[in-house]
Amino acid sequence: MNVPSMLKVQRLTKTYPTAAGPLTVLHEVAFDLAAGATLAIVGPSGSGKTTLLGLCAGLDRPSTGEVILAGESIGALSEDARALVRNRHVGFVFQNFQLIPTLTALENVLVPVELRGEGGAAAEAEARGLLARVGLGERCDHYPVQLSGGEQQRVALARAFMNRPKILFCDEPTGNLDGDTAHAMVELIFGLNREKQTTLVLVTHDLELAARCQRVIRLRSGAVVSDEKTVVTEGTER
């Protein structure tokens, strides 16, 4: 059976103007990711990983090239139209959690659906369920500042799944966490991803984490140096 494409990137280039002339941080990157697949983007600092993630998620516009997300070319869309695409199809997990400090854990999780005007009792029950799923059922009314780093990242994960995204973008999701917490977080990401049948794009330095994805793209100086399918280790993906 032919699996449809969830994310298609074609000849993607990003250049920034600087005082010393244009600076190309991403050069002619191309790949195609099937729905439900998992992809890790790895590379040293400054290789363009985060820029690529931002472009794929529609957070920025490419200088040239095209990004087709869930069948929709997002490069030409206005910022507000891209926001709509993100709200419909995309979930995010950031390295520094990015919870809204003035909202409780529950309210943070509810934001994506409330933005669509779909709040209410059912949404709240679902959000509570997600928080329970990440082990924070008792912490719904806590503010980010009252939570540890690992707990904040779990709230962020619950929020990322709240709008039932087709694709989840994670930017160094364990970068700010200690070993045990990071391990638990990874299990949650892959577990939820499998449960919700979401496509996963993960930016990381951690090669062990990258190895858990079905495919790994290596970047160096803004260009793809390798694009490999991995053999997912038995037992690691439960």
């Binding site: 957070l59 910022e79 507000d80 926001a83 995309v90 995010f92 990015q98 994506p112 933005l115």
Partner: peptide, 16 residues
């Protein structure tokens, strides 16, 4: 600004 950026990531329009 950080809060606004998160809202924008989650799909809030500039107007919202």
């Amino acid at each position: 600004i950080a809060t606004v950026a998160v809202l924008r990531c989650l799909g809030a329009s500039a107007r919202q």
